[in-house]
Each structure stands twice: as C-alpha cells, then as structure tokens.
Design a protein around this nucleic acid. Sequence first.
DNA 1: GTGTCTATTGACGCAGTGTCAATAACGGAG
DNA 2: CTCCGTTATTGACACTGCGTCAATAGACAC
Lengths: 219, 219
Amino acid sequence: MFVVRREGESRDEGTRRRRRPEEAERAILAAARSFLSEHPFREMKVESVMARTGLSRPAFYAYFKDRYELVTRLLEGIGGLLFAVDRRWLVGDPGMGREESAAVLRDALRGGAETFERYGSVLRAISDAASYDERVEEVYRFGLIERLTVAVAARIARDVEAGVSPPDLVPQETARALVFMTERYLIDAYGRPQGRRARDEILQTLERVWINTLYGGSC
Amino acid sequence: MFVVRREGESRDEGTRRRRRPEEAERAILAAARSFLSEHPFREMKVESVMARTGLSRPAFYAYFKDRYELVTRLLEGIGGLLFAVDRRWLVGDPGMGREESAAVLRDALRGGAETFERYGSVLRAISDAASYDERVEEVYRFGLIERLTVAVAARIARDVEAGVSPPDLVPQETARALVFMTERYLIDAYGRPQGRRARDEILQTLERVWINTLYGGSC
DNA sequence: GTGTCTATTGACGCAGTGTCAATAACGGAG
DNA sequence: CTCCGTTATTGACACTGCGTCAATAGACAC
C-alpha cells in the first residue's frame, strides 16, 4: 500500500511529524504573518498561531521566547527596506536645490508608502506590540523610528545649512514630527485588513506636508 | 483612649473600612492617575491600582468592568478640553485671511500642547490601551481622534473654499495626517515620566508644520 | 440593642503563559 | 533491514492575572 501525504496534512492517528528546525521556524513566521493579515495583534495568542502550523503550542517555545520575539523577527528585513527606499534623499546633497530635493523626497515617500502597502499588517502589529512589551518598544521605537528620525534630522540640518530650508527650523524636532506623522498615517491607511484608501490622495497629502514644511517658504 | 485615623491609614487588624460608593470610585480613579504618572499602562494591573486605595482587588469590580473601562473614564473631561481649546480655530471664519487664521491656529496648538503637558501620562495610557482593547479603541480612535479629524477637515475645506489654502489640498486626508502627527508627537513629548523636552521648540515645530501645510504657498 | 442594607472580600474557576521530563520520529552505522 | 543516538515534539504542570459570587461585616435607622 502507498500513502500519499501532502505538506501540512495530518497523518494516521497518534503519529507526529518531524521537521528541520529551520523549516519549522519559517512555518511559524509564515503562520504569524498570515494570522496578522486577518486579525489585530491583540488577538494573536501563541495557540492561534501554532494552530496554523500543525504543531502544538509548546513547540513554539523551542523557536521563540514569546510572541514579542516573534513579531520582532517579523520586523527584520522590513526595517531595512524603509531605510533603503529613503536613502537617496537621506544621504543626498542639498546642493541640488529645492526643486530637486523635493523631487527626490517625493520618490522616497512613494517608496515608503509602497513598503507600508505591502507589509502594513505586520508593521501595525509591531507598532501595537511596542506598547505591550518593553523589548519590542526598544527595537521598534528606539531602534527603527528613532534611527530614522536621526537620519532625517541630519538631512534637514544640511538643508538648513545650505539655505534650502529656512533657518528657524529645529532639525531634530521637525524630523521627529514628520516621521511620527508618516508612521501613524501610513499604518492607519494600510495597516488594517479592510479599509485601504485612495493611493493618490495619501501620497499627495504626505508630499504636501513634508515639502511645505521643509521646502516651503518660511511664511 | 483615642485613636486618630488619617485618610487611607489602615485600621486595627481584621477590620474593614466602608466608604460611600462615589468616594471609593473617585479614590480608584485617583489611584489610577497616580499609578500612570509613574508607570506605563502595560504595568497597570488591577491589583497594583487597588493597592493604592486600601481596598481589595475584587472591590474594583464593583465600580468598573475592567481596567479598560477605568482608562476610558479617565479620558472623560480631557477629551472635551481638546475640542474646547481648538474651538476658536475650528469654528472660525476663514474670511479673516491667512495671517489671522494662522494666529488663531497658533493659539489652538498652544492650548492643545498645554492639555498634553498636564494630562500627558493619562493620554499616553489611553493611546496604549486603544491597541489592547476594542472598546477603548472605539472611544479614543473613533470617538475622539476621528471626531477631531472631521472637525479639522471641515475647517480646512472652508479655508480651501475661501482661497486661503491651496485648492489641491484634500481636506479629510490632510486633517488626518496633521491630527495623527500632533497626537503622537505630543504624547512622545509629554507622555513619559522622564523626558520633557523644550517647550518652545515643540510648539514652534508644530506650528511650522500646520501653518506651512495649510497656509504656506502651494509650492 | 436590634435589624436592614450594602460595601467589601475570600475563595473559586478560567484563560493564557512558559517549562520540563518523557516520548517518538528521523538518520546514520553496521 | 535493524539497531541506536540525537533531538523535535508534546502532555502535564505551576503560575499570573482576571472576573464572579456567596458570605461577611460596617454603617445607619429605629
């Protein structure tokens, strides 16, 4: 007799299935992503993630310390993306002048928005988890958001220095305000299963706030 | 013999203390405020709040359904303040022109910042709790933040109509972005026990973003 | 003093967590 | 094909914090 088994299919009663550790870990991460695309972080119990893997709840703890470590692992890679898409503007030379600076910034914002469009549910989960757990807060708020803020502040400082942006701008504070706005606004737009709003209006609005603040008149 | 008892002092072994329901409720609310001025919401257990009242943990449930109802009650009153201080700008007539609109907006932002300076720890707790509990999310995100957004959007729409703000502004989206920014930025600045930053820089930054976005050129 | 009302609490069951010793699937050696 | 060591997996346990309820005991009226 031959018994054909497909991936994830349960076996005859009373038998287990054994995977390579790396494979199980990836399965758990995938299960978490899948769960978060349907439910908010507050509903993510270890049990409900493991139900999507065919493994038991205790197996989870062989791979992750707790669900906070799990979401932290989901952030890996995504965080880097946010820097990557912004790099051209972040490290750019303000010598290019207002018009070109604004154009490059526009590209960076478009890239950021695309990242949120793709990974919105995970980013929303991390942002939520940051208020649940000190270590997630460390990684997200201080490791990612704050690092982005510092990079943006440095660029703003150079713009002020070059006379492209008005001199009464406080780079560190302005950067913080703009980064916070972008984070919250994009999570709101793309972080929920249901309500995805008009892409053009979202980008147009972000561009307007950033560009008028940095490259508008001193009014 | 006379025994002098001060408020909150424990009595002889084995005796209880009985208060008027209203008094007990106020004591619990005060204990929660006090706790939140020292610890983040994630550490607020029913037990640790009740420890500050001299009452037992189960007594809590005679007054509140759970800790989420507790923080919701803490928001009452504060939410109204945020509307009150912004009222002059929110209901104002854009016929006054850019300069005066900007001046009134500046006042509104100052008022909002003062509210956060005073109630920062509670507002931070509510904002955190909103990701823990659906009902808090309802009250805070949709009841307060969204209502503010709608009011701001209405004012922006009038500004656009009057030609005070540029015509390519999307009122609803712009309002959302600005309100989110202000909320997160002020919670960051005033919501933690430790780090209160320079008041002037904070206000100057908020003003700049709002005013350049709404009353700056169309750039 | 006696009785009534109700604020208060000890004790319970529950949900979800994190751990560990025992189990059994896999893979290599013979 | 069989044996055997490694280790992925899990049943069962203890623990934390929650929400409930019947029983207890202050306060006040008479």
